[in-house]
Each structure stands twice: as structure tokens, then as C-alpha cells.
Design a protein around this nucleic acid. Structure first.
Lengths: 236, 236
DNA sequence: GTGATAGGTGAGTAAGTGCTCACTTAACTG
DNA sequence: CAGTTAAGTGAGCACTTACTCACCTATCAC
């Protein structure tokens, strides 16, 4: 679709454009008013409950106990409000800042099974703490191409790069199979985690309840050694 | 949340209520007009592109080359139109009809690796053919509780039941590990498949392009034997 | 023929929608 | 103190939304 060159600089470019168009203030910690906080909280709640199109600015204003015009004073437009909510979250997730705990976990001197269990435990906690925002980002990226592209170009890429570096190392060390390409290994790790999160948040019925520790251990088990039984292993 | 007893009869009950409220005609193949077909096609396209709330009936009417009033003649309301589109699809997916190919594949006398590869190939094809509708169903079920409950009670359950029966058999035969609970095995199988579909449809960039056969084989490999390398296996 | 039924429509309607504007209030700056 | 700036708002704007209604046409049974 787009060429690699275009992708390289697109994130910073895009952020700057968005910041200009929607009046997004990036680094400067310009103190938020009490009302601004309430607006963002209300927006998060209502966007995640009804979706962007289904949420009305009047409903957000009402929940925030604020005049509707106040929203537009600060965020210029409804879409600006969405981006104010979502971009800082994406930035935080995408920078090394949030990937550092991952590396910290993986660099410990422990059996892989334990490392992956800790990794999953950590990421699951992170996602749960930010579930509403993540829901908004994921759903809206399905419908807003610019948001989707920003996610692809920045978030997915940086996660993938960090992962694939470690995977390469581990394959050379013999901790991971070296007959699988990196992207398959990376996707497998993510798939098991995402599968669990989907189950937990959408179909909690199909989970052993109150046994998260055990579930996380099983995830690491399956990821590392698969689900094949003894009979299969003889044949292979 | 809800008790088991309530769940048991909820699907048929719910369908009947929906059918009455929105004038949904279930079995009787009462011939669709040319215009009705066009409306459904347009609705599918626009719902999946903009989401339910983001889609306007006027846009649907325009795409279908039909007067807006015609939509309401046949489907009573916008939500009725959505359900007309979505419920037959769910029903078809949820009934044994669509699960039969799955069993047919799994009952062949072949190595597990091959069976899972065929299974994934088959399901991936199915999802791709119906991607637009599936997208609508998944996204809308996040926002419409009744739809979500219908999915949970009916679709998830019937899939889970079919899967867990086979899994139990295979565990007893030694084809699958018997030290994992059924729901973990089932979730693992689904996770690997869903992970691939997400990658393919949302982040196609991270896929070996034009090598679907190979990708499917890797999925089955990872599912059965995991990603651990030789060093790990010695220790375990 | 008459009547009934169903498909289809143009022209509306009331109730929102996102957003603007003129304005007030309060807090800081010199 | 006056002057500037930012936070905040009530009233209203142009426009869109889902939906209705009276009406037309075509088919078909009697």
C-alpha cells in the first residue's frame, strides 16, 4: 500500500500534524483543570461504552458536569477529544518506556517457562489496568485509517523489533527453536496472550475462575511445548 | 452474571422476540426482491466500513439505489436491518451445519499435524469469505449487550462443546496432552488461529506474503510442539 | 372488471448532532 | 490599579438523523 520510505517518518510527522490540527499539547505538562480531567474521564467512559460515533458530546458533557461548549474550548472537535485521549496512551505504550519491563523480565536468569509466565502476568495486568482505553484504540483503529496506520507504523513496529531481537538471541542460544521464522515465534507469543485476554474480557465464562496464576502457567506451558500428547511425540 | 437456567432457553427465546420486534422472517424462504438484496449488500458494506452508529440509512439507501423509505418498509428500523443481516449469519455459524466440516476434517486418519493444518486452512477460508459480516458481528457485540449475550450463549457454547468432546477423546488416545484442562487446549487452538487472522487482516505487513500454506503448517507445528528449543527440552 | 396485497417512493417531521459566538468570571502581570 | 489571558458557559446555528405517511403502481385471485 504505502512504501517503506513513507512509513519511516510518518509517525512523528503524523503526530505533529495532529497536534497542530487538534491543538494537542505534547510534552509540556500544562496543568490540567479539574474540569478537563473530568471531561477526559467521561470521554473515556462513554467512548468505550458506545464507540466514537455512538457517543455524543452532550452526553460526555453531562457526565463530566460541564457545559458542552467547554469541551470544544479545550479540544476543538469531537475527534480532537478522541485523539487527546488516545495519542498519549499510544505514545506511552509505544516508547521503550513500556517495553523496558518486558526486557527486564526476559533478561533474568530463570527457566524460559518462568520468564514467559512472568511476562504474561505483567502484560495481562497492564492491559487490564488500561482496558477501556485499549478498547477504544482497537475499535476505532478499525474505522479510522489514520489511526490504524499510526498504530501499524509505530506501535506494532516497535513491539515487533524489540521482540524479534530477543527471539533471535534465544534461537541462537538454543532456548527457542531455530527452525521457525522470527515472525511466527513473535506471533505465537502474542496469540497466546491475546487469546487469554479475549477470553477473560469477553467470554469470562470459559475460564477457570480465580485461578489466574494457574492459567498463566498453562499459557507458558503451551507456548513452549505445545499440546501434543505422548503418542504424537513418538511418531515425530 | 446470569444463571445457567436462564441461559439454556435464552437463544430461541431471544430469536423469537427479535423476529417479532423487527419483523425478521426466519425459515420461510420468502423470495427476496432485487432491491432487498441490494439493500442488504449495501448495509453489509457500510456497516462494516463505518460501524453501526457511523452508518446512516440515507447512505445505505443511496448505495443500494433505493428510496430511504424502502429500507424501513422491509426492516422497520435501522437496528432491524442490522439484525436481518447478522442473525442469519450467526445462526448458520452456530448450528452443527458449519461445524460439520470441522468434524469431517478431524475424523480423518492422518497425523495430527496435518489435521490441524487442514482445520486452520478451512476456517481461515471461511472467515475470509465472510470477513465483512464477521467484523460487524464482533464489533457490534462489543456495544450491544443483547447481541453479545446471544453470541455467548449460543455460538461460543456450541463451538466449545464440539471442540471439547473431540479434545477429551484425543487426550484419552494420547494424541493430546492429558495434563492440560480442556478449556486451555481449546483456547490454545483458537488463539493460534485468531492470532493469524488478526495479523492477516489488520497487520498484513508482518506476514510472509503469498506463503499461506507455509504459515498454516507453522501454526500447526507451534500448536502441537511449542516454540521451545533443544536446550529447554533437555532441562524439562 | 373489483378488491386486496405487497413493493416502492417523495416529501416531509421532530429530535438530535457537532459546533460557534458573544459573553462573564477569575487569575495572573506589569 | 488597568490590561491581558485563560476557563467556562447559555443560547442558538446549520445540518443530519432515523423514521412516518399519504400515495402510486403492479400483480393476482375472484
Amino acid at each position: 500500500m504505502t512504501t517503506e520510505q513513507e512509513d519511516e517518518k510518518s509517525w512523528e510527522e503524523w503526530i505533529r500534524l495532529v497536534a497542530e490540527e487538534y491543538g494537542l499539547n505534547l510534552e509540556k505538562k500544562d496543568r490540567e483543570t479539574e474540569k478537563q480531567k473530568r471531561i477526559l474521564e467521561a470521554a473515556m467512559h462513554i467512548f468505550s461504552e458506545r464507540g466514537f460515533e455512538g457517543a455524543s458530546t452532550s452526553a460526555i458533557a453531562e457526565r463530566a458536569q460541564v457545559a458542552e461548549a467547554t469541551i470544544f474550548k479545550h479540544y476543538r472537535s469531537k475527534k480532537g477529544l478522541l485523539l487527546h485521549l488516545v495519542i498519549p496512551a499510544i505514545s506511552r505504550v509505544a516508547t521503550p518506556f513500556i517495553l523496558r519491563p518486558v526486557l527486564k523480565i526476559l533478561d533474568q536468569d530463570k527457566p524460559s517457562e518462568e520468564l514467559f509466565r512472568e511476562l504474561y502476568a505483567d502484560r495481562v495486568r497492564l492491559v487490564e489496568r488500561n482496558w477501556k482505553k485499549i478498547k477504544i484504540i482497537v475499535v476505532e483503529s478499525l474505522f479510522q485509517p489514520e489511526l490504524r496506520e499510526a498504530l501499524q507504523d509505530h506501535v506494532a513496529r516497535s513491539i515487533y523489533e524489540v521482540m524479534s531481537e530477543r527471539i533471535g538471541d534465544w534461537q541462537r542460544e538454543g532456548r527457542l527453536r531455530d527452525d521457525l521464522p522470527t515472525h511466527v515465534v513473535a506471533r505465537s507469543i502474542l496469540s497466546i496472550g491475546i487469546g487469554y485476554l479475549l477470553a477473560k474480557n469477553i467470554f469470562p465464562r470459559y475460564l477457570a475462575q480465580g485461578e489466574e496464576e494457574q492459567e498463566l502457567a498453562w499459557m507458558a506451558e503451551v507456548l513452549l511445548h505445545g499440546i501434543a500428547g505422548p503418542k504424537e511425540k513418538e511418531e515425530g
